[in-house]
Amino acid sequence: MILSDITMPEFIEGLRQTQTVLIPFGAVEEHGHHLPLGTDTMQAYDVCCRLSEKRPVFVAPPIYYGVCRSTSSHPGTISITTDTLRALAVDLVSNLYRQGMRNFVLISGHAGGTHNAALVDAGEKLLARLPQARIAVVTEYDLAAQHGRDLIETAGDAHAGEIETSRILFTRPHLVKGTSPRETPQFPKGILVRNKRNYWPGGVHGDPSRASAEKGEKIEALVVEALARLVDELENFVEKV
């Protein structure tokens, strides 16, 4: 059930079937010279919608903005602060809880460490406030890399590389504009820098040339299956006391 598409009576009926909601978090962020700025959001929202076709779950509208540090100097990246992301997650879950939801999956298509730490922090705060809430925080890209590892040829593939390019080639081929050269960021270890683009000019971590729509279709299916298992586990989770 796509929250933005259903009516009030359909929402009420939906609560009789499930109290689980998926909240996709993404980013507006550079993805090399070939992928759209909304890649992370598209990937997270797509797998949520695909899962909703297989089982009763609510899917909240995607959050397009995230915390983007490594790509902050690249054209097109629009970042928010950790405080903003944390507050947004807390407000959304709190209101969905008030509306009758009890199981919450905060699924991020953006794999930034600071971004995801803020979502985990929000989840911890919510557990303390909402006595009946069950909360999972998962990075959707990690599911793709883990469960699609047998399909991926590029060691250490990450941002705008083989995995993400394959997935967008499958879901939105019209948005893939050619390719980008293979690249690995060259940030100095332990030293913070002001202009991160000087150490990562192309904004790619991996090898887009190894991507294919066929790989993307298989990876997408594996991510949906992994998400389904997580929802099963969350809905049946009983915390030790």
Rank of each mutant, 00 (worst) to 15 (best):
S73Y: 10
L126D: 03
S72P: 00
F104Y: 11
L22K: 03
H31A: 11
D157T: 04
D83L: 02
I168A: 04
E13P: 00
T82W: 06
D207E: 12
F237N: 12
R172Q: 15
G202A: 05
S209Q: 04
L88A: 14
M8Y: 14
I152Q: 08
I168D: 08
S70A: 15
G206F: 01
E233Y: 10
A221Y: 02
Y64W: 14
H159V: 08
D40F: 08
G26P: 11
D232F: 02
T41A: 02
P181H: 06
F25A: 09
L192P: 03
S72V: 13
H110G: 14
A155N: 10
I23F: 03
S108L: 15
R167V: 07
K215L: 07
T154R: 01
Q99M: 13
G190P: 13
V238M: 13
V176N: 07
A117I: 14
E220V: 00
L37K: 03
H205R: 01
V21E: 03
V241G: 12
F187G: 09
R172Y: 04
L169Q: 00
N236V: 01
V105P: 09
K218I: 03
A213G: 14
R50F: 10
I78H: 11
K218F: 05
L151D: 14
A87S: 15
E220C: 12
I78R: 06
R86G: 11
K54T: 07
V241E: 13
E10V: 12
